[in-house]
Design a protein around this nucleic acid. Structure first.
Lengths: 116, 116
DNA sequence: CAATCAGTTCGAAAAAAATCGAACATTGAA
DNA sequence: TTCAATGTTCGATTTTTTTCGAACTGATTG
């Protein structure tokens, strides 16, 4: 299950596909900005652990993040070295988009006068 | 129908979501590298015109491409100015990934000895 | 005006992705 | 060894996306 692609196998389309989801973008941003973290500390909303596990898998298989297993804890980190060689600018793009969490599907229009 | 977001409304996650599809990545690469084009000239595989229209819509609504309607023809272009201000480096990322068309889901393993 | 061309929209079907709870590992601790 | 903690995997369900053909729209052409 440590099924992670090597640097040369990482595809931009697949990386974009992985990052094109608000939860996964949050995780990637979190790891890119603060370094290695245990996945229980990811600040995603209320999702089940199996769902989180799934999103982590998508990021891992796309080549965005890297696991390090220490005992019963799994630490993840952004694949900074590999990605900055293969796709220079990608990490900055993620870091500079402070819009993390803002995605078309997560925008809600609250209409105050709408009281049905 | 000219439902295109203005520059400040373009979300990186939504852009990544749009580009995280091999057909749409092809279209974006095509436009980013060669400028304005009529959509009938996109070199995507055999897809119906309604499917192509759908993919164009996703790219347009994400803010990746821009339409210009001239008579009965629709010309599209990559939103170079807006995107390079909002997400510097994104266009180069797309241009430098000559892997266009290579995506996990489009890789086929041909086994020569498999003659059933 | 009728026909054609270029493309969008609609409706339905198929495929893919997201989500969850339950069951399953594996590690570390009592 | 038994239990709890930290995940992953499985199976099912729901939701979203992709895809197509048919019908539609708007502009040009005969």
């Amino acid at each position: 299950m440590p099924n992670i692609p090597n640097s040369s196998e990482i595809s931009l389309t697949t990386v974009f596909n992985a990052l094109g989801d608000p939860i996964r973008m949050k995780i990637a941003y979190c790891l890119a900005s603060t370094g290695e973290k245990n996945c229980s500390t990811f600040e995603v909303g209320h999702i089940s652990k199996s769902t989180l596990s799934h999103h982590i898998k998508v990021l891992r298989e796309a080549g965005v993040i890297q696991p390090r297993i220490a005992g019963k804890q799994h630490f993840y980190s952004f694949r900074k070295e590999d990605l900055s060689i293969r796709f220079p600018g990608l990490m900055d793009l993620i870091l500079n988009s402070a819009e993390v969490g803002i995605h078309k599907s997560s925008i809600q229009v609250i209409n105050i006068s709408d009281h049905n």
